[in-house]
Write a protein that binds this DNA or RNA. Sequence first.
RNA 1: GCCCGGGUGGCGGAAUGGCAGACGCUGAGGACUUAAAAUCCUCCGGGGAUUUUUCCUCAUGUGGGUUCGACUCCCACCCCGGGCACCA
Length: 847
Amino acid sequence: MAEQGTTGAGGATAGGYDPQKIEAKWQRRWAEARVFESEADPSKPKYYVLEMLPYPSGTMHMGHMRNYAIGDVVARVKRMRGFNVLHPMGWDAFGLPAENAAIKNKTHPRIWTNNNITQFEKVLRRFGFSYDWRREISTCEPEYYRWNQWFFLRMLERRLAYRKKSLVNWCPKCCTVLANEQVVNGGYCWRHEDTRVEMREIEQWFLKTTAYADQLLDDLKQLEGGWPERVTLMQKNWIGKSPGAKVKFAVAGAAGAGPVEIFTTRIDTIYGASAIILAPTHPLATKLLEGSPTRSEAAPKLAKMRQTSVKTEDLATMEKEGFFTGRYALNPFNEEKIPIWVGNFVLMEYGTGAIMAVPAHDQRDLEFCRKYNLPVRVVVQPLEGEELSAEKLGTAFDEHTEGKLVNSGPFNGLSPEEAIAKMTVLAEQKGFGRGETIYRLRDWGISRQRYWGTPIPVVYCAKDGMVAVPDKDLPVLLPPNPKLTGEGESPLASTPEFVNTTCPKCGGPARRETDTMDTFVDSSWYFYRYCDPHNDKAPYDSEKVGYWFPIDQYIGGITHAILHLLYSRFWCKVMRDLGLIKHSEPVARLFTQGMVQKGGVAMSKSLGNVVGAEEMAQKYGADTGRLYTLFAAPPEKDLEWSEESIEGSWRFLNRVYRLIKRHAGSVRAVKGGKADAVSASDKEKTLLRKAHQTLRRVTSDFETRWHFNSAIALVMKLTNDIYEQEPLEQGVRPEVRKEVLELLTLMLAPMTPHLAEELWEMLGHGEGLWKVSWPAFNQELAREEQVEIPVQVNGRLRARMKVAVGSAEADVVRLALELPAVAQHVNGKRIVKQIYVPDKLLNLVLG
RNA sequence: GCCCGGGUGGCGGAAUGGCAGACGCUGAGGACUUAAAAUCCUCCGGGGAUUUUUCCUCAUGUGGGUUCGACUCCCACCCCGGGCACCA
């Protein structure tokens, strides 16, 4: 750490810019004046800006910081714009790392967590973010998690929470179950990317996200324009809606086996089905082989395929393979006998685990059927172009909007769309099929066999079975002293004082549920709690939430594009159906900021490439740290941390400080009186013009474009321009200096708030800058008198010239032709066309 | 394979059809200083001509196209990052 006055970073000389002093001073003043505390007030326009709540672990680094710096600029700009701003902060405090750390350090997860929260909060306060700290919440507190339990009970009542035995993803390192969404890279744990997820069959709690699948999909339309397209697209893919039909095929001549039910989105092509293909793990596969003529050949193949089909990551590269079961199915539409195969590319988890192969109209089926010499039959012909022939077909014709049916009995001549409708109806009438839409989205498995989470409020009684804990008994508290080993059964299960309880119904002995909830439950609704954080009667007051919601701007990493943001949307819809809120989407606008990297990879403790936020604050001050993360890259892009570049931001702030300090005395003496352009000197006009031009562009960069980096560049440029006019004592009246320097200060305020306050005070204001509105741009003062027009000949730049603003085209052309550089290139040739963009450019096109 | 992003000096990046490289970093040179730090000034994409002033030319991943004019719009391709991945 640099000593003050010795090296660059700490180089505050006596009377110079001293961020440590200034920042502490203004943070104190803001707290005293309660500047960032806001209340719901329907008479004022509101703005709810929020950064995703952090999981407090390790040290806060500049990656975290950047997220909050972006949010704080938005919050401060909106405040200056007169909005009643809600800008809260809290802690995602439950979770495995706390428990693992507790096991390792032989302490309690609460102690570890609270230490981290203390650390994180200290750093956030050190950076002067404009949070309403009264609203701080921590999800591991009973005051918070009791409402997780309350919501769970509401969902239980509505059968949106249910229990079922299921094959689950089990991470041996976490010693717990993972949601599908937490399994990454085709079978690895999202927290331990080197650890393979195992499959285990366990009794689990689920929330019925699939009940909202259509709404989750349809309401994405409401988010258009407000959310990044790639996020809504990822959610759309994740939900994976496929409208289609299920059709039962009877199995020919196998006693007790069948029927086989398949799922298809193209029932219209069913007359072209060449085979039924089962997933290797389909229960019928084994059954059909019993007594099959090809049994001896097929059985070993099936056994082999069942083993290999587990490895999902190989699916993409895996050769499509299959074998004949020796059995046949009957196409219910035409009683055709088609072979039943087993194929390694058919997934048991999707649809019914069985498909019909229609080679002429599905590329994958075509490849499979060609490989095994299964027949190909065209049943849809294109409306235009050459007629398809089954023999020559190399690419399947899978168009379903343009075409007409052939070889399809009574359906010949129909369009595929018509055929889908009619054939589905027929299947339903005859009872062998029905229209059905399937989804990739699964119900949300929320059970975790760990301690540090919300206990699921349910007990099991020998007499009454599963009984919900009554609301009045909430919260079900975590036992204070669990045995944490990280091995074996869940810690709650091995804590008798927790497990043993009485049945709320009969009073007899009962056992508590020992699973805890996934921590994504906590983050699914926390932003509602901020509106009413201390309510002990309800999760929140609907009226307060009604005022603040939806969140006007949510800011966080793209990593939460599916998990957190999908669950939050689900939770919102459930709360709406409970009558608590009226809106259907919690977040109006979403911004996904880039990561801060060092050495090309994201900062992480394990890689040892973190740049600590607190260190930065000590070395350069919060304002320099904030400014740099905003300046170094546009907010949506990744930012490569550079120790050298941050010096530039530090230098700039010093430069501004010196400039204003130099003129503070003369500016302070100014008594009222706005600067105007009428009596101004050239030097004054230049300064006022540049200041107001900068203001115009900075305003738009802040509000509409979010180009904070170029906004800063503009303010830097303005600072350079003012320096260029030095000494201001010559030819610049104090009131003009005042206006220009005040604008400079106000434009910096959202980004470097401490310094801006200090400068504002130096310029003679007794009241805090926090009371000041964003300045109004003055068009009159910004107007240029002369503009430089580039002159092109045949589109190539040949000269520039100064003309009065608003000059007539003819005059501009005449002046341009007088320029030697232009005349030389025109060289007497005829001008066939001249393009004049007023005050912008002239292009002369020669014949 | 499919779907999104992205590709501009030594580096981070500006420029949303109108002067490519704003602003910052790095580097070089200079001023101030006993000296250093800090500060201030000048230069900084390539090639060429001219030599002390400029001028020409090439250049925004590659190749085409639209346009008076393209980093920007269109088509094809290459590379990098991310997401999905036999979804029936």
